[in-house]
Design a protein around this nucleic acid. Structure first.
Lengths: 248, 248
DNA sequence: TCCTAAAAGATGTATAGACATAATGGGGTC
DNA sequence: GACCCCATTATGTCTATACATCTTTTAGGA
């Protein structure tokens, strides 16, 4: 059922390095509420004395905690336990083949539609490319155990992805191919619920109007739009799971 | 529409500190693909020479990049550009009042149901407390511009939250109160789509069967369950948005 | 009294050096 | 040739020190 799980923290309950021990210790005091929000934590030199180490070591720990958002540091004044920034969760979206295989179901996919065309005005909202840019428009149905699992509707910016027009997406699903090709990216996710329309319902083998979980992702690499994908899951059967622990 | 947006990176295109400059430089080479996945990046001593700084400075940058998942470090072998771990996104869920107010709509809420009771077997799946524990069971409807915006169904573990049984949740919504009370927490999110049942539909003023976005969150503090909440949004009207840029 | 300037106190950044740790590769031995 | 041991090498961690930077506080002068 779960798409994925991820825990950020490096949880060494039992101290490994001194760095780890100090980090866990301080984090523990914050998490437990022993040091409430707004509390000024001891100065670097005092912590250094307390743990019997140099200020540099403490400084690195505090820098890490500050980056993680647990504390805020003010020159001259000291370091303070910060208001939890709101909830932050790390959400990991693995590629769909892995997702299916982790459920111990045989994976397959088919491509009912794929074609090259010029970007139109409406595509601008999706892919962030100028009108007229050559794009690849692919629809892909992922199957788990022979039954439809997820509908993937994807646009790829041919200008920014080398060799995408030669790739054979009937052999490798586009998502997996892109993951292996495009080095790294920034991404924007949009997650919402929608009732399945007639086409979607047919392709997923569900009834029209069924509540579906829709994940739209836009990806950039070095400032240029790479791809836009819309993943539709039958909503009652699938969920995104994200586990989050402050720190790192 | 958007619940929230968060960008992790500290994007100083134009170098501030040496640390920042090296970090941006190396990250750039990875993001641009100049250093492809699996590429062994120069040794610390070589980078130190290249940037005219000490090994410690380079070491700190690489440590940070490793923590962010951009590179993997292997003793003796060197540091390598890592396979993007899959997509990771930082998802921030702010409290609902802020969410509504950021839409420039007047916020209000009402509490159709609230009561103290003992945890039953069925609650174990939700809140992770032993049967018989005293819990608070609250239903809360959040309104934006006078119209239902979100349905909140919440369980609070009275044993782990000081003063929750005295709090007046007709004045402050429970989510906001908890955020200000409980210092920090680990959380597990489950996001899925569901059709509105009769009760939900009535409370949200929508038709039965409407696709809704459901976010379930369980929160712990220092190992003890704090609260479980189920937020139901009419799906066509709301979406979660998460922006992600690699690096920390 | 009030404004300004200097001192003090905290973090920020960087260095050089030391030792620990782990993987690799190259012997040497059987 | 197979195996084990050890030197090599790159990263991991920590220290002691130095100077920069930014606030707050204090002291001084008009």
């Amino acid at each position: 059922m779960s798409v994925s799980t991820l825990v950020t923290a490096e949880r060494d309950t039992e101290a490994g390095t001194l760095h780890q021990r100090i980090l866990n210790d301080i984090e523990g005091k914050i998490v437990s509420g022993e040091w409430p929000i707004g509390h000024r934590i001891p100065f670097e030199v005092d912590l250094a004395r307390e743990y019997g180490c140099s200020r540099m070591t403490v400084n690195k720990v505090l820098t890490q905690l500050a980056r993680a958002g647990l504390i805020e540091r003010v020159k001259k004044s000291g370091s303070f336990v910060s208001q939890p920034h709101t909830q932050s969760a790390v959400l990991e979206i693995s590629d769909i083949r892995k997702e299916v295989e982790s459920l111990k179901l045989p994976y397959a996919f088919n491509v009912p539609r794929a074609g090259k065309r010029k970007a139109q005005g409406a595509d601008r909202l999706l892919l962030d490319v100028p009108v007229g840019t050559a794009i690849l428009d692919i629809t892909c149905v992922h199957l788990a155990g022979g039954k439809p699992f997820c509908l993937e509707q994807r646009l790829i910016n041919l200008a920014s992805v080398e060799g995408a027009d030669q790739a054979d997406f009937t052999k490798v699903p586009p998502g997996q191919w892109l993951l292996s090709q495009v080095p790294w990216s920034s991404a924007e996710h949009r997650i919402h619920a929608a009732a399945a329309d007639a086409t979607t319902a047919e392709q997923l083998g569900i009834e029209q109007g069924t509540a579906c979980l829709v994940i739209e992702r836009r990806t950039w690499s070095a400032g240029a739009a790479v791809t836009q994908v819309r993943l539709t899951y039958p909503g009652d059967r699938h969920a995104l799971v994200a586990t989050f622990t402050p720190s790192s």
